[in-house]
């Protein structure tokens, strides 16, 4: 029993990332009808927003510390971040340590700008072109974005730690009556899951309970009629693209401590996220989220030793296997609507 709970928990954080990226992909597909292969790159850009912010905050200059001396008896020179100098060592130090959560604030305007630039500058010219062209041009864009990041940040993963207060693990087993040490779960992964859940809930609430969201949903159902009612639906869809970019970016920011950002992390996630979208049903927001968590949990179950001993290698292929089976038996995916992409 405790092993099962542990696997479910393990699957949740990866599943959260899948669900967030898949949600963004589906938002873009459902509104604009564009298959965005550059969505993984947006996830990666988000992670590098966190890296950039933590580097910016760590910009420091050399000061002499009169209280300490080096071995020659001179005052010791220490690197002090400017932030510490401005806000005092205590507040400044906390700001430096909390650079990843602060990255959320930093990433939102950047991702909005990137999203708007992408949609207005490139993707709007591709609405009328075939899906294959959309896939190809966004694939090219993903290559370009990832090479630009590689040029500035290098090819190696950049460790970006979580705030020290949140490092460590929660003994989850004790809380629900198991032996101590049986279910240990890092705090940050729990935070990631909660964060993802909040973000997903926010997107759904936005679509469900605001006038803007209502218009967007109407536009997803019948774009032409909404246009005939005198609503500038294109403008709203552009904003939805920016929102999807923000969702992907924030998923990336918070993922940075779990997996050190490198320039091809976006592509790795993109392939799986596409599988998730297809399994959930193209154009179905709920399906994307559901399939994201399901496949994440399934993947972690498949990597249990009890399973891999029976079917070796299943953990590597289970997601693809499920995708193939679902596509062949339930062509519209889990929650797909009729008439979408057929």
């Amino acid at each position: 029993m405790d092993a099962i709970i542990l696997q479910v928990l393990n699957g949740l954080d990866k599943g959260s990332a899948y669900a967030l990226i898949a949600l963004g992909l589906t938002l873009i597909f459902g509104t604009l009808g564009v298959v965005n292969f550059a969505h993984g790159a947006l996830f990666m850009l988000g992670a590098f927003c966190a890296v950039t912010l933590s580097r910016l905050l760590a910009i420091s200059h050399e000061t002499a510390d009169p209280t300490r001396t080096d071995f020659l008896g001179n005052p010791l020179k220490v690197q002090t971040p400017y932030v510490e100098e401005w806000f005092g060592p205590e507040i400044g130090g906390t700001i430096v340590e909390w650079s990843v959560p602060l990255g959320i604030l930093f990433a939102i305007p950047i991702m909005i700008a990137v999203g708007l630039a992408m949609e207005r500058g490139l993707i709007r010219y591709f609405y009328k072109r075939p899906h294959a062209d959309q896939i190809l041009v966004t694939f090219g864009l993903a290559i370009v974005l990832q090479e630009v990041i590689k040029y500035f940040f290098g090819a190696n993963p950049i460790p970006t730690p979580a705030p020290p207060a949140l490092v460590g693990s929660l003994d989850f087993g004790v809380m629900i009556g198991f032996d101590p040490g049986s279910i240990i779960y890092p705090y940050w992964r729990l935070i990631y899951f909660v964060f993802a859940a909040i973000l997903i809930a926010a997107v759904f609430a936005f679509l469900q309970f605001t006038t803007f969201g209502m218009v967007v949903r109407a536009g997803m159902a019948d774009r032409e009629t909404v246009g005939l009612l005198g609503i500038d639906i294109d403008k709203r869809f552009t904003i939805m693209f920016a929102i999807a970019a923000v969702v992907a970016g924030l998923a990336g920011v918070m993922y940075a401590p779990i997996n050190s950002p490198n320039y091809h992390m976006g592509m790795d996630f993109l392939v799986l996220s596409f599988v998730v979208v297809v399994v959930g049903g193209m154009g179905s927001l709920g399906g994307a989220v559901l399939a994201g968590f399901l496949l994440g949990v399934l993947e972690s179950f498949a990597s249990m030793p009890q399973v891999t001993n029976v079917v070796p290698g299943i953990n590597q292929i289970v997601i693809y296997l499920v995708a193939i089976i679902i596509l062949l038996t339930r062509p519209r995916g889990l929650l797909g609507r009729k008439g979408v992409m057929e």
């Binding site: 298959v35 899906h131 896939i135 596509l327 062509p331």
Partner: peptide
Amino acid sequence: RSGIYFSILTLAFAQMSFALAYSV
């Protein structure tokens, strides 16, 4: 299947082949 589903299916098969060749 056709369209994007076909692309995903072929991608899934190729990734499965890769993962299996790499491990099991």
